[in-house]
């Protein structure tokens, strides 16, 4: 159907409006498995107050725009993360906290930790540190907003485009775990 999908209004113009709106209203679903979850309350409450920028926590992935991976991911939790990510509505963004999703961090030689989250989900913004301080988290949110504004936060489009490859990587990780389970 026409109006919003490029027939009447130019697709680029519409995208711009959409970007402005979604930049100022990022609702997040935080996947609190790692230690980064504890950095979020100061960000939400009166010290740093993320609601200034229209951000807020949401209860379910259907309602949310941003997925926060707050720390290390095991293969078992990766399954849930992928499920949650796929239930979110596009445009959707991923922010990963700390060094674990980047290169495994202190779990670099762990047998069941996901070393590079980027192989399984498109990450838009990384926050370095172990753990990042709330200032860092705030900074990441602002960075994400800037990226959205410039139209560079295209992780969800990447996920759609390279869906097969992402699925293959995910399947490999899951199979690895299953073989291990059967062996044990």
């Amino acid at each position: 159907m026409g109006l919003f999908d490029g027939d009447i209004m130019k697709y680029e113009d519409w995208n711009k409006i959409s970007r402005i709106a979604s930049r100022k209203s990022l609702w997040m679903v935080h996947f609190c498995t790692g230690c980064g979850a504890i950095e979020l309350p100061p960000v939400m409450t009166s010290r740093y107050d993320m609601e200034r920028f229209g951000m807020g926590p949401m209860a379910t992935p259907r309602q949310a725009d941003v997925l926060l991976i707050t720390g290390y991911l095991t293969v078992k939790t990766l399954k849930r993360v992928v499920n949650v990510y796929e239930q979110m509505q596009s445009p959707k963004y991923v922010i990963s906290f700390g060094s674990c999703p980047i290169n495994g961090g202190m779990y670099w030689d762990s047998y069941n930790t996901v070393k590079r989250l980027d192989r399984y989900l498109p990450v838009d913004v990384y926050v370095g540190g172990c753990m990042p301080r709330p200032e860092g988290v705030m900074n990441a949110f602002l960075e994400l907003m800037k990226l959205i504004d410039e139209g560079k936060a295209r992780g969800w489009e990447k996920y759609q485009k390279y869906y097969e490859q992402y699925k293959r990587n995910q399947k490999m990780a899951f199979n690895f775990e299953r073989e291990k389970d059967e062996g044990a």
């Binding site: 159907m1 026409g2 109006l3 919003f4 999908d5 379910t60 992935p61 259907r62 239930q87």
Partner: peptide, 14 residues
């Protein structure tokens, strides 16, 4: 009408 929607299976549920 103006926004496209995709029907998902019942099992695709939060």
């Amino acid at each position: 009408v103006l926004r496209k929607q995709k029907k998902v299976d019942f099992k695709d549920n939060f």
